[in-house]
Amino acid sequence: MGRYIINRVFISIPLLLIISLLTFVLINLSPLDPAEVVLQAQGVPKITDELIAQTKEELGMDQPFILRYFDWLVASLQLDFGDSYVTGKPVWSLIGPAFLNTFKLTFVSSVVIIVMSILLGVICALKEGKIVDKSVRGVSFFLTAMPSYWLASIMIWYVSVKFDLLPTSGMDSYKSYILPVIVITISYAGIYFRNVRTSMISNLNEDYVLYGRACGLPEKKITVHILRNSLQVAISIFGMAIPIILGSTVVIENIFAWPGLGSLSVKAILSRDFPIIQAYVLILAAVFVLFNTVSDIVNAAMNPKIRNDL
């Protein structure tokens, strides 16, 4: 098991390097000249070729591509993503707190989504084909199909404005979490609980369940065995779901005025603030790789067969 973890972590290093290179190449392929962007953002009235050349030198843009990539990579590893072109502040001082805010929202939502998915998935699988199963699936289908921005607006209108129960926006207390978390949960739990349900049902028909019953084991113990085996599929899916939610809270964050990564990245993209965009893409990619690795390791801990696969 220890060897598996070391191997798995080791494999993710080249993956991260490739991702960082791709990020850097793609941003540099942009037709805009960063030096021009900087000058425009600083409000320089007349941009001359001389000025551009000077700014390029200041930013180190005159150096060869590979050198710039390595400089950026080494600095990024120390969380130094350079300065924002627009505000001139260090990128980390902007993206750090925003990332933390988004992460808090994602974390709470993910916990709720995972708990709900497992709970509903298990209930539906055990009552397969019965009214409970059918109604849960029906309702969840209906809720998942609703666009989250529309659902969010409706909720703000009824819960916060009309009945004044919860804050409409911002991030002030635990109450601010309730509405965004509900909206995110509704749009994701409906998808993930189906995975848990399907994998539970396919496990229910396995021989080991029949043999367990034939040996007179109580249903409770058999359910634990089934859960243990069906959660392996769910864990890989959840492992991917968390970074997806992290990256796709843009809409929700804008509606609820959540001071997170989503709002920051949209602003950065609109003002062509390259260092922030680069850092944002790199951080999200790193989170993806991290969660993928973690879910693989958890799966290997649960399923002895996988351990030898690497």
Partner: peptide, 22 residues
């Protein structure tokens, strides 16, 4: 359930899938 195993015991066809793989 008390009868199963203790009084009536079953032996299945495929040993490979008869035990929890994890």
């Amino acid at each position: 359930r008390r009868k199963r195993g203790r009084k009536l015991c079953m032996i299945l066809q495929n040993g490979m899938s008869a035990f929890d793989p994890s």
